[in-house]
Amino acid sequence: MNFKKQFEEGLLTKNPVTVQLLGMCSVLAITTSLFNGLGMGLSVTIILICSNVLISALRKVIPSQIRIAAYIVIIAGFVTIVDLLLKAYLPDLSESLGVFIPLIVVNCIILGRAEGFASKNGVLASAVDGLCQGIGYTVALVIMCVIRELLGSGTFGGGLLNGGEGIRLLPAQFPAMMMVMPVGGFLTLGFVIAGSQWLMARLDRKNRKNRKGGR
């Protein structure tokens, strides 16, 4: 188990959002303020780690025929726990994220990792995997939020900094409102994935050059 490799994969080469293209519903819908992005990212990471750990612990006990149904029930359980905890202790975040919190159940990232990793690996490795994929997801979310909020509302840190208003970086008449609307979500994600693909292509070319030069 290579922690550095898993971290790098989660962040770039196997990033759940930009490479595996999972969990897109939430990425597009709630990334309009930093508060939302961090809150959702944190929630998904916690659920991912918990469900990975439990499913990995039970992987020898759950019969193969019903494993998807069993994973879904376990994931739904953790999602409901997070939902109730948010409603009780962070009601503003719960309201802001709305129906997308229970929709974490069908966030393909969690089921995908459960089926693809946790069901085949030990508990510690699964926990680390959950953490790395969760961090990759959160980073992608935060990048989306910052871009959309800056270009759409002209602020940074909406919901968190400056008493909830966010730090105004652009004058009020400047931002393009469409960025916080569905259009903006699609466009921003398109550019972010293009950027990530460009970055990976460059790293790939550099690695190949290094390998050739070393001979």
Partner: peptide, 21 residues
């Protein structure tokens, strides 16, 4: 088996619900 898992999850949720409700 599926029922048992669901029941365990339901029990856990009932507990959390009792605390947070």
């Amino acid at each position: 088996t599926l029922l048992a898992i669901t029941a365990a999850v339901a029990a856990a949720l009932a507990g959390v619900n009792a605390i947070t409700a």
